[in-house]
């Protein structure tokens, strides 16, 4: 499983979510977490049709299984990813 975190530096909610993403990474080393700066990786943001950030996408075998837009605390993030 993989978690994509689409963010941008100017986005306040994205900055607020960052520590939660880092905590998640530490607590769940089995899940690959990739943070995508939508300014630097426009193509990837376009590929996934990201229209609002922060945007979290869960991939299973490379396929998107769910996504969520907005900030959430660690417990909710874990529930969302399903760990």
């Amino acid at each position: 499983m993989e978690l994509l975190d689409f963010y941008a530096d100017w986005c306040g909610p994205c900055q607020m979510l960052k520590p939660t993403i880092e905590e998640f990474e530490k607590a769940h080393p089995e899940i690959k977490v990739t943070s995508v700066n939508i300014d630097e990786e426009e193509e990837l943001a376009e590929k996934y049709g990201v229209s609002s950030i922060p945007c979290l996408v869960v991939l299973k075998d490379g396929e998107e299984v769910k996504r969520e837009v907005g900030v959430m605390p660690l417990k909710k993030l874990e529930k969302f990813v399903g760990v």
């Binding site: 100017w10 986005c11 306040g12 609002s52």
Partner: peptide, 13 residues
């Protein structure tokens, strides 16, 4: 079409 409630978050898209 995307609907956003935060211009400073999503404007640059």
């Amino acid at each position: 079409r995307p609907v956003s409630y935060c211009a400073t978050c999503d404007g640059a898209l």
